[in-house]
Nucleic acid binder design. Structure first.
Lengths: 193, 193
DNA sequence: CGCCGAGTTGAACTGAATCAAGAAACGTGG
DNA sequence: CCACGTTTCTTGATTCAGTTCAACTCGGCG
């Protein structure tokens, strides 16, 4: 599928979008590639873009006392941005690291907000994206509050086995809120059954 | 301040709202009161409303294995709803319990979505509310991931001392993700210094 | 080869949970 | 206004999930 159609399909999954509005949205987009290990946004920067991931994968994390804590992973056909910073205009607490070389559409923030101003569909898509993000965060908060490390791992396995396969122990454990050693032990347990 | 002005002030803090749109939004609202211990929404129901809290306080919580886990508190001038259920149309995982007798505006979901459809400002307010909710959730997720119980308590103290005063140990501990006994001990520590 | 980062395993440690027993606070009815 | 039962909060003793630190294995790569 060509990149523009890929974007259109992703947007259309949120709400119907009139052709002329989509055309406005997509006509000036640049494609930008990122090598493994590079960053879409670094902690402390003020986010200036939304990215649409055509291929590859990324990891959002923040640091505290020198330790890294992963808040999410993103894969192709997803929109990615340091949402907190994009919304607040404050320095991002979160870094976005490329963990599989990626091709993206680069959507400047100013352009996005212009799109919000010009079109009702724009606002709607923005609302639906924010709502979807909210739901992800709430679900995770509930899991962090109420489940043990082992239960969180089990749940992730069942919801997204591909992710569990493809991501390093180091990154996965920091997403689950545990140490790599603990995840290793949990895995051993699961392998037995 | 009269209720309508109170609502208008709260909405205006999100974005400017034209008079005729506000009039449309506010003209048919009912006021509904809730006694202490009653519920705005119960786990398993499909949320049909947004509430605007004119006075009082509420607690959002879910249960797992018979235990309660609090995800948030709300006070006057805030919008309250079982957001997950409102968005997904699925049964709410979350209950909203009144912890100080409350007066609310009752905003039916159908009416809200009608407002979204009719006005661009509607969509915008919806977007801004969802974004604000997202930020709260992200901040909490980050704290749950990276801080110890004691650090989370200290942070809450400094951010919202009134809340720490006014809420029972039981509810506060379930919000911090610890047992009441642990919170009691943490408090004793803090009292010493 | 030999190095290096990623993953595993073991042993000791610790923050918080659990269990159990009191103490304080609260409302309700006599 | 006090006596009571009920719930909330505190305190102590014990247990446990997960951390920490250290040593070892493994596969990739210069």
């Amino acid at each position: 599928m060509n990149p523009i159609d890929q974007l259109k399909a992703a947007l259309s999954s949120f709400t119907e979008i009139p052709d002329e509005e989509f055309h406005f949205f997509s006509k000036n987009l640049q494609i930008k590639s990122f090598e493994n290990g590079t960053f879409l946004c670094r902690e402390g920067q003020i986010e200036q873009h939304i990215f649409f991931l055509l291929s590859g994968a990324t990891r959002n994390y923040f640091t505290r006392d020198g330790k890294e804590f992963t808040v999410g992973f993103h894969f192709e056909d997803e929109f990615i941005t340091a949402f907190y910073s994009l919304l607040t205009r404050e320095p991002s607490p979160v870094s976005i690291e490329v963990i599989q070389s990626s091709r993206t559409f680069l959507i400047p923030r100013a352009f996005l907000y212009d799109f919000y101003d010009k079109f009702k569909t724009g606002e709607r898509i923005g609302r639906l994206i924010a709502e979807a993000q909210y739901i992800k965060r709430l679900e995770r908060e509930m899991e962090l509050l109420s489940l043990t490390a082992e239960q969180r791992y089990a749940k992730l396995m069942e919801r997204n086995p591909a992710l569990v396969q493809g991501i390093s122990i180091k990154h996965l454990s920091s997403y689950l809120g545990i140490q790599p050693e603990s995840l290793s032990r949990i895995r051993k347990q699961f392998a037995r059954n």
